[in-house]
Nucleic acid binder design. Structure first.
Lengths: 143, 143
DNA sequence: CCTCTAATGTTCTTTTTAAGAACATCATAC
DNA sequence: GTATGATGTTCTTAAAAAGAACATTAGAGG
């Protein structure tokens, strides 16, 4: 979902450059609450402001909206490693979403931490946890 | 002016691909006259439609809006994006565990599916889900 | 622990801008 | 010249975002 990807990326790059929302708002001559709504996925900005933000952060628009496969070089390493079946086909088939997944995790340290915790659990615990996650996610997906 | 550059580029690429305005409109599920207004610099499209157009024409968003200095090497982009703290150190120091994480996800399709579901939630829902996951994982880690 | 302040998130109203329908014009083939 | 497909414009409506005000959170310092 574009609005989510944009929200994540805006927040990520803003913090990376150590700006407050107010500072961004001042630079764009808009209200600070608008920046908050962009970052929380409530609204999308117009093209003008999107372009200005990309220039401010010195990233491409494609990166900003999560279009470019910025992790492609990393992924090609894994493709080489997993060139035998059946995983090669899996990667090829889901390449787009898989890239996004990697990028997402890189930008969400807390998620990465949770995944690390999850991986450190026993298999049995992992299965239990997975059932819980599945239920939670399914209920939320329905809303 | 962005609106002019966009207009010019849209018309150029549409004709290059031999589409009519009606065909573009059909692909985007919008009125044909809207495409005309985009092409004549009366209005700018939203980000969703801009992205769809760039994908349809297989051009970058940056080219579409006429943004300059877009030709960076993909690898250097990747390194630049992740080279500053705290993520550079994280990648450097945790590269092994990051590799393991990727490896783990590839080998657990159900986990990957759940992550995809998670990423498709709204930002608000993601935050709620994350709190639940954190609690569950913390309790399990203690056992 | 509490307090304070800066920073951020949300809601409701207003504003702005774009979408759409209808009409007008242009381009091209015959 | 006509006909038709394609495109351009105008006016109204709709949709989405902006903004102001309020609410909540995060973190520093005592």
């Amino acid at each position: 979902m574009l609005i989510n990807r944009f929200a994540h990326n805006l927040k990520y790059y803003r913090k990376k450059h150590d700006y407050t929302q107010q500072q961004i708002a001042d630079l764009l001559n808009i209200s600070r609450s608008v920046v908050a709504k962009w970052e929380n996925g409530h609204v999308l900005p117009d093209l003008n402001n999107t372009l200005k933000l990309s220039q401010l952060f010195q990233i491409t628009l494609d990166e900003f909206v999560g279009k470019t496969n910025v992790t492609q070089n990393l992924l090609s390493d894994y493709q080489a490693h997993y060139s035998s079946e059946p995983f090669a086909e899996q990667i090829d088939f889901d390449e787009e979403s898989f890239n996004y997944l990697i990028d997402f995790i890189i930008k969400h340290p807390s998620l990465k931490q949770q995944l690390s915790t999850y991986m450190a659990l026993s298999i049995k615990q992992q299965k239990s946890a997975e059932k819980i996650f599945a239920s939670v996610l399914e209920e939320m997906r329905k809303q």
